[in-house]
Simulated assay, not measured.
Amino acid sequence: MSKKDVIVLNSHGVGQYAYADHMPVWGETLCVTKWHVAEDGGKGSNVSVALGRLGIDTAYIGKVGNDPWGDLGEKWMQDAGVDTTYLYRTDEVSTGTGLILIGPDGQNTVIDGDSSSVKLTLDEVKAALDAMKGTTMFVTGFEVPEQLSLDAARYAKELGMVTLVNPSPLPEKPMGRLDYVDYLFINEVEGRYILDLPQDSPILPQDMLNKVQEKYGVPNIIMTMGGDGSAVLCGDEYWTVESVKVENVVNTAGAGDGYMAATVAQLILGKDLKEATHWASKYAALSVTIDGTIPAYRPMDEVEEFIKSLG
């Protein structure tokens, strides 16, 4: 097995959507319409597909069931050029899936199944990392068990890889010092949660990032803020990235994963973090104009054409 540009360790799952005229109550049999499987993956398959389509030599580590949802994830990633040698398949567990019920006014409720990654072991992850020793960057997040994710990041760092962690969803237990993590990707809500701040408390993004950096010892922190763009702390240098406004916003669900993948891709291509985050903001703007997460991650030539159209 050869080294890669990037290894991604995170979950794969498949989203299903259905439309209802009201939300159900316990014991009710509910009739729905337009029930369909969407091209929406978990954070691991999302980021892997985005990187693969941008021409980055990417490998995925994860575990799914021997079922149609696992088949879909494998197909999506392989079609994007991702190496799925270490997409472990098992009969022990079913691939994670979620049902999103959408009401008449757009309100929704989500029924989220267990992640099949709960059956992934550290020994399996280490075997994959050892086989791809020499890889440049390792990307992980907490849709796999957070301790597995952090242990894997620490091991990847020992192997000489640059490590990036997206601690979402945030764990209930403290993460401790993360000085083996080179890049931490969070959103504003997560930043406030990390610092035990009420969501409506006034704090400047720069102050928030300084406090997160002090707490974890991570040199580079990127915080997305939705329509307000993103804020970045690189060592002791701080900057903000404005969001790119587009007229036709269709689906924002995969924008954060896309922004992270685009940043990683630009770093692999030799850009510095400031250049990478500004490019990623434009990439994310394109992604929200396309329905579904997997279809929204476009190849490099289409992204560059979109960026040219912005003027």
Rank of each mutant, 00 (worst) to 15 (best):
P145E: 09
D83C: 08
D257V: 06
S116T: 00
P104T: 12
V232Y: 08
V93R: 02
G235R: 09
M1E: 12
S230F: 10
S48T: 09
P198E: 14
S116G: 04
D112C: 12
E124M: 05
S309G: 06
R89H: 12
V110M: 12
T136G: 05
N210H: 13
K215P: 03
A18Y: 05
K133N: 05
G226E: 11
E304N: 09
S115E: 02
A280N: 08
G256H: 09
V212E: 07
G73Y: 10
G217R: 02
Y238L: 05
T109S: 15
K133R: 10
E190Y: 15
N210S: 13
A128R: 00
R192D: 01
F185Y: 12
A276Y: 14
V241S: 04
G44L: 15
Q206R: 09
T33G: 02
S243Q: 14
D123G: 02
I294N: 02
P167G: 05
D179F: 03
T293D: 12
A253Q: 10
V82W: 04
G103M: 12
M23C: 03
G134Y: 07
D71S: 10
S115K: 01
T240G: 13
F306W: 02
Q107M: 14
M225C: 06
M23E: 08
M225P: 02
S230T: 10
M260S: 08
A152M: 04
S2H: 12
A285C: 05
D151V: 08
E124A: 05
F306H: 02
T90D: 11
T136E: 13
V144R: 00
A262I: 09
P171V: 04
V264G: 09
G217L: 04
D182R: 01
Q16W: 14
A253E: 13
S2R: 07
K43H: 14
K119T: 15
G311F: 03
H12F: 15
G191R: 06
P24W: 13
L164Y: 11
L170M: 10
G65K: 02
T277V: 13
V250W: 04
E302A: 08
L101T: 03
E146N: 14
N108V: 07
D112V: 15
P198N: 14
M132D: 01
I268D: 01
L164R: 00
Y17M: 10
Y216W: 14
E188C: 06
P202R: 04
S243V: 03
V139D: 03
V47N: 08
E302F: 11
D105A: 13
P174Q: 01
V118F: 12
V144D: 02
A20N: 13
S149T: 03
A276Q: 08
Y216C: 07
R53Y: 05
N220A: 07
V125E: 05
V82K: 01
E275L: 14
L51N: 07
P171D: 10
K63P: 01
G176W: 11
P24K: 03
L54A: 00
R154K: 11
V32F: 07
M225N: 06
I222A: 06
R154P: 00
A255D: 02
E172M: 13
T33E: 08
W279A: 13
G42F: 13
I194A: 03
V110K: 05
G73K: 05
K34Q: 10
M260R: 08
Q107R: 07
I290Y: 05
L87Q: 01
G73D: 04
T97H: 15
G52F: 10
P295A: 09
C234Y: 06
D79R: 10
A131K: 10
